[in-house]
Amino acid sequence: MGLKHAVEAALKNPDRSHRKLWATREGVESLDGELPSDFPVEWAQPADLARLVAKDAPHQGLVLECAPLDDMFLADVLDGDPARPVVVLDQVTDPHNVGAIMRSAAAFDACCIVTQDRHAPPESGTLAKSASGALEVLPGSRGEPRPRTRGNRRSGLLAHRPGWIGRIDARRGPSHRPGRTRARRRGDGMRHNITQHCDAIAKLPISEAMESLNVSNAAAIALYAAATRETE
């Protein structure tokens, strides 16, 4: 992983299996908290660290090697607070977008994020950089949960559809739980077999001068709409 915030969050996560930290002296001094005395650190120069990470994942003097987090079972996550939304992504393949969506989902207290087994990026330094620590606090699950689970409703997000997301009632029965928000992707939008499993399809009220928004921006707005609707 690159980026200081992602490394700090991973080091503080007790569910992470840490292997080694490559770092400059300045990088370690910048950490929020001290490393355990027995933590494996290999001191390096900035140029050496740059060769360990992708060009779009600046290291800031820190590169952490660690094992990927285990996927969560969706049923276990849903046993928690029923008022928290679940974000489901359909064929969002850019790790920058997925990381940014994770950051917004964590900011708006989403329950978890669900990606596909295929057509979804694996955990990486680029994704962790974009998530800026959210990768460590937001549970993740892979798969396509289509059957209805305990009465929850699903809201899909597509351009050129009537009804905007703030007016869609995506709540279930007595608990008034926000529905799962499926973010629109560029191109053809959500696949037909996915839209068939949505209870409602909505859009964002953007100007006709713009055809659509980046999927991470759209997801952030949808999560805000769900959060504010919950408190109205």
Rank of each mutant, 00 (worst) to 15 (best):
E8D: 08
E8P: 05
E8F: 02
E8N: 04
E8V: 11
A9E: 00
A9N: 03
A9W: 06
A9D: 00
A10I: 02
A10C: 11
A10T: 04
L11F: 03
L11E: 08
L11I: 01
K12C: 15
K12W: 08
K12M: 14
K12R: 15
N13G: 02
N13R: 05
P14N: 10
P14S: 11
P14G: 06
P14R: 06
D15K: 14
D15S: 14
D15T: 08
D15R: 15
D15F: 14
R16E: 01
R16P: 00
S17C: 09
H18A: 12
H18G: 03
R19Q: 15
R19H: 14
K20I: 15
K20L: 15
K20Y: 02
K20S: 11
L21N: 07
L21D: 10
W22H: 14
W22V: 02
W22I: 01
W22P: 00
W22C: 04
W22G: 01
A23P: 01
A23W: 09
T24V: 09
T24D: 07
T24M: 12
R25P: 00
R25T: 12
R25G: 05
R25V: 14
R25W: 01
E26Q: 14
E26T: 12
E26L: 13
E26M: 08
E26V: 11
E26N: 06
E26P: 04
G27R: 10
G27L: 12
G27P: 06
G27T: 05
G27A: 10
G27C: 07
V28A: 13
V28Y: 03
V28C: 13
V28N: 03
V28D: 01
E29V: 05
E29R: 13
E29T: 06
E29G: 01
E29D: 11
E29H: 05
S30L: 11
S30K: 14
S30Q: 14
S30Y: 01
S30A: 15
L31W: 02
G33F: 06
G33R: 08
G33I: 03
G33D: 13
G33N: 10
G33Q: 12
G33C: 07
E34P: 01
E34V: 05
E34H: 05
E34N: 09
E34W: 04
L35E: 10
L35K: 13
S37G: 09
S37T: 10
S37R: 09
S37L: 13
S37N: 07
S37V: 13
S37Y: 05
S37M: 11
